[in-house]
């Protein structure tokens, strides 16, 4: 048996499932009220600023004369909120669990496998993402920005967006060495937030930049949420689902490898 085989053995072998770790997370979070409050307050603040405040300055959505700017921006902000919730859990939270609290050094000494640890991380982060997405959807309704029943599709869409970003985030967490490295994480997230058509359509860019933006996962996530929100599901949704499913599969597979490398010495 080679070392790689041995590592693979320690890494896989599903047995206990994800419930034990999810139970642990529930124990930890049931003492913290901030997450629930934030899930409602933060979207309200963002909608107030970007939708109403900026919206009054901009008027209607560029190129879409029947859509108010607030209605255009809200789905983009929602996608960002889902991305932030999921990655906060798998980048910041998982970094803490892997390297600061060393939770997983303890867990791998039990029958739980690394594949199960990764799965539990991803389910939990997805749940956080869906909570953020649903909270945001409620805030949009409060601002009168929900017009179609199709908007309910935003909930499952949030789950897919959260899962894809959670898996990518876990990979990032495995590379982070200390808290200072988080500024580089910010360096990736911020431009995505600003340029992935959150605030204005792809058409404002020259073709070269458009191609670049079309590679960004947040661009597809925003499409996946904006189309049902505006009540018009089309080809972009199909592309977005394909993109995010592929991203999830690839990142998930690599996250298990990375976690194995970090945890098995």
């Amino acid at each position: 048996m080679t070392v790689t085989e041995a590592i693979r053995e320690v890494a896989s072998r599903p047995r206990v499932g994800t419930w034990p770790l999810l139970t642990r997370q529930v124990y930890v979070y049931r003492r913290s009220w901030t997450e629930l409050v934030a899930a409602v307050l933060e979207p309200l603040m963002y909608l107030l600023t970007m939708g109403v405040g900026l919206g009054k300055l901009v008027g209607h959505a560029p190129g879409l004369s029947h859509v108010s700017y607030a209605a255009y921006v809200a789905p983009g902000l929602l996608a960002m909120a889902v991305m932030n919730a999921a990655t906060a859990e798998t980048i910041f939270g998982a970094f803490d669990r892997i390297k600061q609290a060393k939770l997983y050094d303890v867990v791998i000494a039990t029958p739980m496998s690394i594949a199960e640890i990764v799965r539990a991380e991803l389910w939990w982060a997805t749940a956080r993402g869906v909570l953020a997405g649903t909270g945001f959807l409620a805030a949009m309704a409060a601002f009168g920005l929900v017009h179609s029943v199709m908007s309910l599709l935003i909930v499952p869409a949030s789950a897919l967006v959260a899962l894809a970003f959670a898996a990518a985030g876990l990979i990032a967490a495995s590379y982070v060495r200390d808290w200072d490295d988080f500024q580089y994480v910010q360096l990736v997230m911020l431009p995505m937030f600003l340029f992935a058509t959150t605030f204005y359509p792809l058409s404002v860019y020259p073709r070269g930049v458009q191609l670049l933006v079309e590679c960004l996962p947040l661009f597809h996530s925003i499409n996946l949420i904006r189309e049902p929100a505006l009540g018009a599901i089309g080809g972009d949704t199909v592309v977005a689902v394909a993109y995010l499913v592929a991203m999830t599969a690839l990142c998930w597979w690599f996250a298990v490898r990375r976690m194995t490398r970090v945890l098995v010495r």
Binding site: R15, V16, G17, W19, P20, L21, T23, R24, Y27, V28, A101, K102, L103, D105, V106, V107, A109, T110, P111, M112
Partner: peptide, 27 residues
């Protein structure tokens, strides 16, 4: 059973929860 060198208890949990959760890791 393993008793690691640094205690590595779960600081986010209570004493009892540490036992409850750890036991669940064994299925």
């Amino acid at each position: 059973g393993v008793v690691p060198q640094d205690d590595s208890l779960d600081a986010a949990l209570t004493v009892r929860e540490n036992l409850l959760v750890y036991g669940r890791y064994f299925g």
